[in-house]
Every structure is written in structure tokens, then in C-alpha cells.
Computed example of a mutant assay.
Amino acid sequence: MRKDLRVTTVLAVANQKGGVAKTTTVASLGAALSALGQRVLVVDLDPQGCLTFSLGHNPDRLERSVNEVLAGDLDAVDAVLKTDDGMDLLPATIDLAGAEALLLMRPGREFALKRALSPLLGSYDVIIIDCPPSLGVLTLNGLTAAQSVLVPLQCETLAHRGVGQLLRTVREVQAITNPDLVLLGALPTLYDARTTHSRDVLADVSDRYSLAVLAPPIPRTVKFAEASASGATVLAGRKNKGADAYRELADNLVKHWAGNEVVTFAPELAL
């Protein structure tokens, strides 16, 4: 892969709670950034391979994946796949489930992904890491390799229960393996603007943890499930509100990485 003078932004998307549209966010944001002219690599760190599948590749049929990369048996560039949405993919297979045990026996285990991605820095504008729904060594690798972390947050009662634990993990990573890691904030997902409940949940999380809530909130729509089943992102289909939200988020993040303030959402002011 040709190296150039690109300055690469590495973003981890993490939440140990499942069902919060984490993988949907990685895929859709990656596609939206690609549409803006950014060269994007998405990294699937989840042994379930949901990101890999949602981008049109069958994890059960792949011989090369991030598992071999983390094990040191393969250079990351040799495992990268193309996708129909314009971004590149470092895929996952079920074999990644064994990587946790392998990495635990190695010194510097939290730095395996950072070392593996190092040769790719400069070849991409943005690398987005889809962390697994846990706080194990794979997520620690994602947070250690990243410059910033985004937390998808489902707008429902008790959504904050996992946030505190994740934020403690982020602080530990900042203290031990990645002092430059920046917490961008929470991204509201499955948001229903018609209810006060969604706004109340976001306001509670924002107040409780002094956590920025990013704009725009991602609305609840069946289009996300339909897109995942088809092996493409929601941006590939007809115009819809979910795709529009991720396009706006991508635009906001590109401006933020260029030096502007991150755009936040004020749930108490939403109508």
C-alpha cells in the first residue's frame, strides 16, 4: 500500500453494552466519511464479525483476518479487504475469540493492535475501530491504539449503567497505556424525538458523568436492520433519516478534526 503524507485520525467506538448500534455506527460513519472524500479503514475487533458481515464479507469464509494480525503471523495490510461502500475493512472471524487468551500471555498485550496498525498510519485519513461489547483485552487494545473514543448510547432507561464502568476503563487506559486518549463523548442512538423519555435519558447521562452528547442524535429506523442484512450500509439505499444523521455526524467530525469545536446536542432544548 502506497504511503503518503496523510495525517491519520484513529477513532475507537466502544460500549460494553450490546444492542446500542455500535457496529451500525462504525459502518455508517465510515461510509459517510468515505463519501466526503476521506480514505477510511474500519477495523472489526468483535469475534462475532458483525461489522465484517454487514459490509458484505462472510467471516466463515475468510482465511485472513485481524486475528492473524494480532498474533503476529500476518501484516495488517495483507488482511485488508475492499467494500462496496468505499472504505477498507480489516475483518474479524470467530478465531478472534481465542486472541484474548493468546494476548493475555504476552507482555505489552494492550499494544498489539497499535503496533499492527502503525504501518498503515499515513495511508488513511481515518481508522475506526469497532470494539467488542466487553471490557476485555481486545477493547483495551482498541482504546490503546486510538486517539479518541466515541460511545454510542441507546436512549433508554438504565442506559447509564454501563457508562460509568466504561469511563473508568477509559481513565485507566489514559493513566497507563494511552495518556493522549480523548473522550469525544456519547452519541445518542435509537433516538425517538417524539418522546421526552429519550431526552431525559440523555440529560441524565450528561449531568451524571459530565459527558458531552454529540450531534446529531441517530434516529430509530428499520433501515439499519435492512441495510445490515443486505451486506451494505444504510447510506447505500434510498434517502432516509438515519443516513442523513450519519452524514451530518461525519461532516461535524471532519470539521472537528480540522480544529473546530465538536458539535454537541442539547437534549433539554430538543423538540
Rank of each mutant, 00 (worst) to 15 (best):
P217R: 02
N58E: 14
S123D: 14
A203P: 00
V10Y: 06
R171E: 10
V173Y: 02
G19K: 07
A203K: 02
K241H: 14
S210C: 10
K239S: 13
Q48I: 06
L253I: 03
E248F: 11
V40Y: 05
G56W: 01
T25D: 07
S198Y: 07
L36Y: 01
T221I: 15
I94F: 14
L140T: 09
V262A: 11
I128M: 05
V254A: 07
L45I: 00
L121D: 09
D46G: 00
R6A: 12
A92Y: 05
A243P: 08
L102R: 15
L181P: 05
A101F: 13
A31R: 06
L5W: 14
H197K: 12
L269Q: 15
K3V: 11
T189K: 14
K22A: 04
T139P: 02
V40W: 03
I127P: 08
K17S: 03
D95R: 11
I176T: 14
Q154W: 06
D125I: 09
G56D: 01
L167P: 02
A12S: 03
L138N: 08
F224L: 15
T221G: 15
P59N: 07
K22L: 04
M1H: 13
P47L: 04
A99F: 06
V222M: 11
L249K: 08
R171C: 10
L120C: 11
S65C: 03
T9P: 14
R168I: 14
L181Q: 10
S134M: 04
V263A: 12
C155G: 02
A14P: 02
T139D: 03
A258M: 10
L190F: 13
V149I: 08
V43P: 06
A99L: 06
A232D: 13
L183Q: 04
T233W: 08
P179A: 06
F265Q: 07
L138H: 08
V13W: 08
A35T: 11
L166H: 03
